[in-house]
Amino acid sequence: MRKKLLISFAVLLAFLLIGGMYYTLPYYVSKPGMAKELAPIIKVENGYRENGNFMLTTIRMGKANIYSYLEAKLRKYDEIYPQHMILSTKETEEEYNVRQLHLMAASKLNAIEVAYRKAGLPVSYDYKGIYVMQVMDSMPAAGKLKPGDRVFKVDGQTFPSSKEFIDYVGSKQAGEKVSLTYSRNDEEDTITLALQPFKDDPQRVGIGISLVDDKEIVVDPEVTIKTDDIGGPSAGLMFSLEIYNQLTKEDFTRGYQIAGTGTIDPDGTVGPIGGIEQKIVAADQAGADIFLAPNEKGAKNSNYRAAVKTGRNINTKMKIIPIDSFDEAVSYLEKLPMKKDR
């Protein structure tokens, strides 16, 4: 009898332990990720090689289970976020992942444009349509379109940008219908939807999607960026520096391991990102010499200030440099002496 009880208890305990791995909590956990060299994933046709490396930095984020939640409570640079701080209102994980991948795609386009224009090379775009980022509940597109769908015709017409798409749909009245031709998983389909006023703005009508341009940048020489499933816009600055370095004969790495983070706008402005503390830890663990951090024009709670504080706490030897723009980053790198121990 006692043996049966022990076996039953062991089975129950095993069930609880295994179940704890799959039972998710309404929280997300993020932790230091990696510092990844960019030269292997960015290739400019016939581009110049470098002696050092530019590196993007990442964080690892996932839905919390009991164990990851408790582990994050004990680890200094793991962060716990309530679900509402990660997902937008009524946003699903699928929509969040699609949004992150499209933010990464936009970041690549901005980085290429900034780098090529800095190198004095022409840039143009080939507009192909729009990508659906999110579908709003109780609107005509709900249940019809999905995040990641590519809409390339409206009423049989194509448009040169998402602005023209929005203007065309917005010029119609509630109850009027539009025909959308879209692709999903390499298959095309057409649906017809009746326009409806938005609840928060009854003067506007639409089908209830948030969207982003589907466009392809046209440059010569060609450039490819392979990021697999890395999402978000935070690698923009480092992408632009790696591309520019391959376009120019001068090696701006000067033999150093240069990590960093920050969004990049088409005009070269560098913007703040989340998880700067965790990215400092990742870069330090990867042996980076220099870390470029968004300065936010010297704001008291800037990424740069948080990075410096974390750097002190972990006793890093990295130089942490405040950056507000792509040009500022290039100017700093131009003044770097060659690394002696390369």
Rank of each mutant, 00 (worst) to 15 (best):
K4T: 03
L6I: 15
S8K: 12
S8T: 10
A10E: 13
L12G: 12
L12N: 07
G19N: 10
Y23E: 15
Y23A: 15
L25D: 01
M34R: 08
M34F: 12
A35K: 03
A35Q: 02
L38S: 10
V44L: 04
E45C: 11
N46V: 13
G47C: 04
G47N: 09
Y48G: 06
N51H: 08
F54L: 11
R60L: 15
N65D: 07
Y67S: 14
Y67N: 13
L70A: 13
L74A: 14
R75W: 05
I80W: 11
H84P: 00
I86T: 03
L87P: 00
E93K: 13
M104Y: 07
M104L: 15
S107G: 06
K108V: 02
A111F: 05
A115Q: 01
G120M: 13
Y127I: 14
K128A: 15
I130D: 03
Y131Q: 05
M133Q: 03
M136C: 04
M136T: 07
S138M: 07
S138Y: 08
P140H: 09
K144A: 09
G156Y: 06
G156F: 06
F159I: 15
Y168C: 03
Y168I: 03
Y168D: 03
G170R: 08
K177M: 10
V178K: 12
L180V: 10
T181E: 10
N185G: 13
T192N: 06
T192G: 03
T192K: 10
L193M: 12
L193E: 04
D201Y: 14
P202N: 01
Q203N: 13
V205S: 11
I207Q: 07
G208R: 04
I209V: 14
L211H: 09
V219I: 12
V219K: 02
D220W: 08
T224C: 10
K226A: 15
D229Y: 09
S234H: 15
S240T: 04
S240W: 01
E242T: 11
E242K: 06
E242Q: 13
E242A: 07
N245T: 09
K249V: 14
R254P: 00
G255Q: 06
A259T: 11
T261I: 07
T263R: 01
I264W: 01
D267N: 15
D267Y: 11
D267H: 14
T269Q: 09
K279V: 07
K279D: 03
V281C: 10
A283Q: 04
A283S: 12
I290P: 00
P294T: 10
K309D: 08
T310I: 08
N315M: 12
N315D: 14
T316Y: 15
T316L: 12
M318C: 11
K319H: 14
I321Y: 00
P322Q: 05
F326N: 02
E328L: 01
A329Q: 02
V330P: 05
S331V: 04
M338G: 13
D341V: 08
